[in-house]
């Protein structure tokens, strides 16, 4: 059954208002995995804002102040809540774009919601009731990543935990599904199935090619599959695209194997938009299943 998907809004006021939905322009949620410095954040935001504007793609800047799910306790976790939020606030002020940041701890929620337009629930934590409810109560738009271990239909439970607070500004994102150990696979059916919740859906192209902890104390990834998977996800009906983007991915302080180089973003987005727009011109067919008589 083709699902009715509601529009959600992110930002507005001091920053651009982004609306994600079935009949809205494509949105990129993109930026470096971790906030590395104010200078770096402002530079990447400026570049991505220019690229997205040139293509008619909506833009939400993404970066995180504490990557709590790194493979190793000695890996770089980020600048921390206070300094990280100051950087995100600068991105908002300087470039006028809404910002997305993942929050792993309920104690960080209140401070984060004062700055961040789009609160992201990390995939590994997508079942955590206290975290989801705390996020929902902020009144900010909520971005829930589907756990690599979660079925797409069970994401209804995660969304309902947020919705139980009265907040229905929810985006659900597929970032790959565990395929044995240290390997993910993209099941494009996830996008259509998650739309059954009535919330728009997003495809995370850079984490989907991740090989979790495959390098021992850090994750690997096969970036070469990103372009094909982006086109597939747009064709499968994604309402937004998420990518972690860096100007020197091999030297990135977090997830170096999966972040995509800035120089590829324009062409990937151009192709994504072509497929995205085409899909909206051609209604999805509804086909009946085998049914026992």
């Amino acid at each position: 059954m083709v699902s009715l998907v509601k529009d959600i809004t992110i930002g507005g006021g001091d920053v651009a208002k982004v609306t994600i939905g079935e009949h809205q322009p494509l949105t990129l949620i993109g930026g470096p995995c971790a906030i590395e410095s104010e200078e770096h954040a402002l530079f990447i935001a400026k570049e991505l804002k220019a690229v997205t504007e040139s293509l008619g793609v909506q833009f939400i800047y993404k970066s995180c102040y504490d990557k709590d799910c790194r493979s190793s306790s000695t890996s770089f976790h980020g600048l921390g809540v206070e300094e990280g939020l100051q950087v995100l606030q600068r991105v908002r002020e300087v470039h006028g774009v809404p910002v997305n940041c993942d929050v792993s701890n309920v104690e960080w929620m209140e401070a984060t919601a004062k700055v961040v337009d789009f609160i992201q629930i990390p995939a590994y934590l997508c079942r955590q009731t206290h975290l989801l409810k705390a996020a929902g109560k902020t009144g900010r738009a909520i971005h829930i990543k589907k756990g690599q271990f979660m079925s797409p239909w069970n994401m209804r439970n995660s969304a309902q935990k947020v919705a139980s607070t009265g907040n229905q500004n929810i985006l659900l994102t597929d970032r790959g599904t565990f395929f044995g150990y240290n390997m993910l696979v993209s099941d494009m059916r996830c996008l259509q199935i998650m739309k059954e919740t009535g919330y728009p859906v997003c495809y995370d192209a850079t984490h989907s090619i991740q090989m979790p902890s495959a390098l021992g104390t850090m994750s690997g990834g096969q970036r070469e599959f990103i372009p094909a998977l982006v086109r597939a996800a747009m064709a499968a009906g994604a309402n937004a695209l998420f990518m972690e983007i860096h100007d020197e991915p091999d030297r990135a302080l977090s997830d170096p194997a999966t972040q995509i180089h800035l120089r590829y973003v324009k062409e990937i987005l151009r192709q994504a938009k072509m497929v995205y727009d085409l899909v909206r011109e051609v209604p999805l067919m509804e086909i009946e299943n085998y049914s026992a008589r």
């Binding site: 239909w153 209804r156 439970n157 085998y290 049914s291």
Partner: peptide, 15 residues
């Protein structure tokens, strides 16, 4: 049940 091909856990989540 006779008219669906969904796996049972998916069917269970139907509103």
């Amino acid at each position: 049940i006779l008219s669906t091909q969904k796996p049972l856990p998916h069917l269970f989540m139907t509103p």
